[in-house]
Amino acid sequence: MSEPNEPVPGLKQKKVFKIIVLGDSGVGKTCLTYRFCEGQFLDKSEATIGVDFRERTVRIRNEDIKLQLWDTAGQERFRKSMVQHYYRNVHAVVIVYDVTKPETFHSIANWMQEVESHGLTGAPRVLVGNKCDCGTPESRLATTYAQRLADKHGMPLFETSALLDSECDNVESIFMTLAHKLYSKQPLRVLSVEGERGPRLVTLSRQKRNNSSNDSCLCS
């Protein structure tokens, strides 16, 4: 069976956007990427050891775009030296926290620092509060609080649940937002050719500012 996405000889190769998914252990990074790439909830998810990889092809303005999601281990000991390698040529960043665990939200500062230490300050980023199906509204981290932090770092906030089928559209929009943002940055982020993203190119996004309050889920 031939894959519809197989590159046709003579035609231009598909664009690839690399997205790294970060966040504390157990916030649901694996389930989130699985939900997006496989369209369902990963029932028996396990701890990620090292780095996992998933991908999906999306279509933007009649062009096939390959989104590569790098799902990383949450435990800190894997980060130093190991995951480093995977920051190379990353185009966008997703930082995930668990809305029922404030400590995972407080780690965001560290994650931001790590992102910046890898020179990704200019890359599109989104903040994702996962597991909004869990706990009581009172036990969940207040959206306004998270929104403030997201605004501070100039990134859109999404609250979602990888578990709920009703939330899958929201999971879609997380990655589609990034895909559109990256797409609009073309031709500055073309393909994944090493060393091609020369420093002489000036990145000028023409995309209108995202109204992030529309992105929040209504699951409370």
Binding site: E55, I60, M176
Partner: peptide
């Protein structure tokens, strides 16, 4: 399941091919 495109571009579609089994 429908895809969502944040900027309302109706030309967006996707195919699921995520897990390279």
């Amino acid at each position: 399941m429908e895809s969502i495109s944040p900027d309302g571009d109706s030309g967006d579609k996707y195919t699921i091919n995520g897990d390279c089994s």
